[in-house]
Design a protein around this nucleic acid. Sequence first.
DNA 1: CGCCAGTTTGACCAAGATCAACGCAAGTGG
DNA 2: CCACTTGCGTTGATCTTGGTCAAACTGGCG
Lengths: 230, 230
Amino acid sequence: MYTQLPGASQLQYGGSSIPDVARSGQLDALIALERIGTRSRFSCNQQIYCQGESGGECWYRVISGTVRITNLLQDGRRHIAEFCFSDDGFGLESTAERSFSAEAVGDVTVMRYPRAATERLAEGYPAVARLLRDMALKSLTAAQSRLIILGRMTATERVVSFLLELSERFDSEKHIELPMCRCDIGDYLGLTIETVCRVFSDLKRRGVIEVLPHSITLLDRFALEAMGED
Amino acid sequence: MYTQLPGASQLQYGGSSIPDVARSGQLDALIALERIGTRSRFSCNQQIYCQGESGGECWYRVISGTVRITNLLQDGRRHIAEFCFSDDGFGLESTAERSFSAEAVGDVTVMRYPRAATERLAEGYPAVARLLRDMALKSLTAAQSRLIILGRMTATERVVSFLLELSERFDSEKHIELPMCRCDIGDYLGLTIETVCRVFSDLKRRGVIEVLPHSITLLDRFALEAMGED
DNA sequence: CGCCAGTTTGACCAAGATCAACGCAAGTGG
DNA sequence: CCACTTGCGTTGATCTTGGTCAAACTGGCG
């Protein structure tokens, strides 16, 4: 069971190490939280929850794999609000009806936490309340920084910032395995799949990245950062 | 002092009326919160805090007026992440350094709450923790619904959704006073000021709105909603 | 009255969308 | 084993939307 606990070092509680966590009673809170969670698996393109579905009865945490949070317009235009990787939380919504769907990008394992029980827990454990708040704030920061990308950046800048974001997420590795297809990238960046391809090809031609269908290698991070603006 | 309290009816605590709030101890929490807050005023275009500034030492709540949350790129491109109207909270950030500026759009009065004291309060009062979380979730929902607007919608759809959003925010009034200039609207919607003007003119020509420099009247809401998609 | 900032309109241009064709690898079935 | 299909990725030709640049208009204010 404890293997499902988010590692204390990942919790961003001001430089917390295991002893700190234990001393401040946060470990109790986290154990209580894990007790109300259940583990489940989804395979590629399976829906975890669906836009329009009543109530956010649950929220989730990614254990392994990648989840995309999508939004569909009636005429079929799609947008991806967020990619969630391991240890990211998702599915906490304030509205009565889900305004997004969550889908597995590849094979995915998640923990599911019932909302009502979590609320009750948050009343008793400030650490749980804080965890929820930090989760929401983290998503908020991510969403807001993407607003300027979608609103004001060129196709090249969008793709570059996407690559740098991914690289940073995976410990600044030069080699990035792309779990998602070109179509997902386009829908994430507000571009068509063709434009994403063209930008990749262009960056390859300029020698700053190496491109394979499901992986990218950053050859010249300095040049990339210069192209990424901001 | 109590006049600065957000009205209980606006707090979205599951149908809370004053007696409910008092019974559950939430009133105590809110009074404690107000005690650590200070009121301040800003005039048009004055900065409340600045992008790059160290630490989010404080968060804020709008008492009256409009605040814009902006993001500036080195080359001068600007984006507005959010407009905050009365009773909206802003300035809660998870990062060490502010990634946005907050500026008064007209004359503005806000309450300022020190972050550290609020955290301490949240440890003791679950209601405060919940208020903070709801605030973050509300901003998150707003930011995420704007992602699809910026990523996938046409100029007309963006402007229409902006008008409908404003109208909804002001009790579905047909007549909307625009506190912000065309430039702010453009930066909010990821469009140029000229495009915003052209769309306004086009909607006027089609007879669905009436346009004055600082106010808009919705003449045909049905037509507008049809143009807004989603 | 003239100035000035904000707004509106028009002419032209370019970034990226659309449409279409092709490449390529992994199935699938005879 | 080989034709055939299918899904994804890439590339090219053309078109459209919205950006850019420039000029005119408007209203408030000294």
